[in-house]
Nucleic acid binder design. Sequence first.
DNA 1: ATGTTGCGTGCAATCGATTGCACGAGCTTC
DNA 2: GAAGCTCGTGCAATCGATTGCACGCAACAT
Lengths: 365, 365
Amino acid sequence: MTLMDEKPRPKAATLQTIADALGVHRSTVARALNAEERHRITPDVVKRVTEEAERQGYRRDIIAASLRTGKSRLVGVIVPDLANPVFSTILDGVSAALTGRSYSMLVADAGVPLGKQAEIVDALVGRRVDGLILATAMRNDPTVSFCLGLKVPTVLVNRAEDTLRASSVVADDHRGMGLAIAHLAELGHRRIAHIGGPEAVSTGCLRRQGFQDAMVSAGLGATRIVSADSYARSAGASAARQIFACWPDTTAIAAGNDLLALGALEYMRERGIGCPGEVSLTGFNDMPFIDLVDPALTTIRVPQHEMGKAAADMLLGAIEGPGRPPELQRLPVTLVVRSSSCATASGPREDRREGLPSDLLLPRA
Amino acid sequence: MTLMDEKPRPKAATLQTIADALGVHRSTVARALNAEERHRITPDVVKRVTEEAERQGYRRDIIAASLRTGKSRLVGVIVPDLANPVFSTILDGVSAALTGRSYSMLVADAGVPLGKQAEIVDALVGRRVDGLILATAMRNDPTVSFCLGLKVPTVLVNRAEDTLRASSVVADDHRGMGLAIAHLAELGHRRIAHIGGPEAVSTGCLRRQGFQDAMVSAGLGATRIVSADSYARSAGASAARQIFACWPDTTAIAAGNDLLALGALEYMRERGIGCPGEVSLTGFNDMPFIDLVDPALTTIRVPQHEMGKAAADMLLGAIEGPGRPPELQRLPVTLVVRSSSCATASGPREDRREGLPSDLLLPRA
DNA sequence: ATGTTGCGTGCAATCGATTGCACGAGCTTC
DNA sequence: GAAGCTCGTGCAATCGATTGCACGCAACAT
């Protein structure tokens, strides 16, 4: 028995081959195999078709079906950076929502420049995706206009636009930063600075506004703000440098996300500024493993997985029942207190070099 | 001017609509638009076709083309866990290799049970993917058999099978663990234990073998081995418990990956065992942000991004020039020394509670 | 002047599933 | 007993691009 005659099936099974084997028409086979249409066919025929399909190892050709119906059961997801755990967690949520609904996920990494966005959308739309999930949106995004113009159901996740042109699933960024500031204020901090994310994206803008609003309602001044131009560690470090240069008496920093906080932490470590001893620090996102840094970062937990799932659910809803108005879902966030924030020393320290001995604050450094 | 008459194009542009506008046959249009066939057409016609296509906003329907040609320019990628940074970094590499080659990436999360694998492959193959990248392979994997039986070009990444049935891109796991052991031995450690990954996957097995071989060539005993049944933090913690229960005089642990090391670290912290003061620890993978844990983990750097890229390149090679024998690419790894490993104290300590004061080892704990 | 070669296009089949319509048989109803 | 209905199935068009083959024309060789 050679390899060749193991499977005497020369070509793949199609509706036609099954129909031929049974002496019925291929449309009958199609109906028997389609749960929606099956009721129109005699049970006996259905049974024979099912068995023959099984025997031939038939698998429905989604490509051919897509061509005929115009639906691909494909969802495109565009993220700014696949290697960023925040976005891969969102992807995980999307995947979870799609699984079992016979939708598949086409993933595209927009890359750092974000310049090739239109090209990427083009490629996805060219594949006739039924819908798009964008995790890359800026506050007023031409890519969104493009998708909307194409009449492709589109859902934004994590970042939303200023105006609700497309359905969006976001975290409560404003309130989240409020929680962080309330926490720091409660610990006695008054001179709190903010490292903001890019103003061009909603998270950067809303968290900055949250900072300002919370500072004002706490009766504090909200002037110590440096906005980073990207959510990168290096940007966090240079923002921290700027903060300490302008306002050396700062006792706490609320960063716009965890990566910026990490950058600030690096800078502080480099400069020998103790955290939390001299300066408290908070992040935003509670990304995976951020609890393991030294010191463990106090941060705002954002339900990335749930956001991804909600976005996918919303998109599927829009695909299956079109014509609905855009909807905004704002998921709650929570404060996670860890070790990077603590109460201020009794009074204000004007010279931070007089803080606790750095070898106690930065052991093994 | 209402929205409606902005674009008087009722239906999408197709080859036929362009052909009609120009009074040529649609096959001529197809050839004029296809770089491979263009040379057979009069330059003037090509020009007119190109312009008309532009005017109508024509976009080739990949679905229809796929149906005719049987090629989808789609690659399926199956990962065990999207939320794990190791795999999302691999994905990033795959994406990088695919970008600009007009291939797209269908991502599927096999999920923890790994039971639905066949189902997932089915779904992807049903979409007529041109090839598959599996990051989920066990040492002898029925899913691989399934893919091979389907004659779908398949490349394994990160994990390989025992026999080279499918092309694979892996890291040099054996040598990597050798580097870790050599490092620990050089620091004076002699009673080194190993937390192994699952024996069912190549990384678990090869790193364990690497441990044994390196210990033997260093003239040390390679008996202190506990294999975890998964690459989870919790598994690392319970393996560590077992190690300290069986061999309390252990001075170093080489973990099968970073997550297992983190689990061990948690356990040690809980028990008040200082790292690296009392016990040195090494990980494997150098996953993102692992440098930020306390203490920063000494580990083996695995080029995940490059592995993903290499796997995608290899797959594209196999798709475009089929019939080649399977190929194994083993990427080099490097030792990254950080703070979780240090030289042993002068002599062996039988009772680890007599180590350095724990408040110095675990500040702010 | 006829035969040959080559080039640019047109023609039509093809990929495989879907679906509106029609047809015929069996059944009810007045 | 004829008209009308239901039900199961067949028929054929359709989705849009691709491609082997053939045809017609022009230039060149005989």
